[in-house]
Design a protein around this nucleic acid. Structure first.
Lengths: 195, 195
DNA sequence: CTAGAAAGTCAACGATCGTTGACAAATGGA
DNA sequence: TCCATTTGTCAACGATCGTTGACTTTCTAG
């Protein structure tokens, strides 16, 4: 038993590297094929390792998925910015999350599985409740922040579905500027628009 | 062999009823659990029948799914209506499709499986190309009808995801009037708005 | 009534899956 | 060096899945 687990030890101890490889492979395959479509054997093969190791490092497929489906949107604090550019700010951050270099696959993993996996769905509702809604609540009447955040989420999840999951050609073809120009005003109205 | 198959025969011939029962059970379970989550054995049990019969009547699970995932949105011809109410017309039809009495489960079946099943995804793209896009093309410059239809679809698919699949509480709580009031203008702008 | 087709039952196949436990190799501190 | 812990390999388990083929029951036309 390693009793230094909760310190900041300088040990990338072989096992940690294997663990990371498994997790990386899992993120890739869960993102591409969803929870059901990605088998533990597939993950193991992608990490050049035995399937049994996947279970040893993560206790089950569910736990592996939970580790892989971590999402931190890092939404900006909207109170600090010009109230008229809130919609634009949100859609710009959206594009960074989905197409920026630091994209951690987290959202696509959740979205890919949330339709047929209750855990993923709950996790996604959690992201809404703990990451999206508070940001909106900071700039809108808290009484209907949920409604506004819900509308914002509906547009953003739909855009993600069409562009990154379903890959509807006309939506894939949209440039960043077009997206900002079209969707920005929608989000602006949903977030802080009239009534 | 029944050589009267392509006429309009007055024979609900036992087998036709079984066939219909299987299809109904399949639609229900595919809508609830998706392609992977609904097994042929489940469908058979729901139809009070042997699993082998499902294969006999439909040749395979894929074919059964194809039969179950039929969608006809019956979108109204937008050219006939007041140009200023296009957004409202679209969102009203959306609510009818998803919550009206004639809801055939078709869209929820597709949406539930499209994220991890390529056939369902292709079918959904097909619905977009053959049912949504033409309707938009009738009232907008055909050159960017794809872009406009894509934006409309992103909002509507996102709303369906949040309200019927993910069941985000604040989105579920929205009344029809609230939805029409909030989403209508968005669709209006996407469909026929400036530039 | 009777023969043949249609409808339904049953058991099993091969494949894949998550998971386990027994075992071998590698590693590192004493 | 020796030994204990870690790390990795291997084969198999039980379960579930889609699908098949042989069989029996039910229905219906002649």
């Amino acid at each position: 038993m390693n009793f230094m687990t909760e310190n900041q030890p300088k040990k990338p101890s072989k096992s940690d590297r294997t663990r990371a490889q498994i997790l990386e492979a899992a993120r890739l395959l869960f993102a591409e094929h969803g929870y059901d479509g990605a088998s533990i054997r597939d993950v193991a093969a992608h990490a050049s390792i035995d399937p049994a190791m996947v279970i040893r490092y993560f206790r089950s497929k569910d736990e592996l998925f939970a580790r892989a489906a971590v999402v931190d949107l890092q939404l900006p604090a909207l109170r600090a910015i010009d109230r008229n550019t809130i919609g634009e700010t949100l859609i710009r951050r959206f594009l960074e999350i989905w197409e920026g270099p630091a994209s951690g696959h987290g959202m696509i993993i959740l979205l890919r599985s949330a339709t047929s996996n209750e855990f993923a769905a709950e996790k996604l509702r959690d992201v809404f409740g703990h990451q999206v809604r508070p940001v909106i609540a900071a700039v809108a009447d808290p009484a209907d922040a949920g409604r506004r955040a819900g509308l914002v989420s509906s547009q953003l999840l739909g855009l993600a579905m069409c562009r990154y999951l379903l890959r509807l050609p006309p939506v894939v073809a949209l440039s960043h500027d077009e997206i900002i120009q079209n969707v920005g005003p929608t989000l602006q109205r949903y977030a802080v628009g009239e009534a």
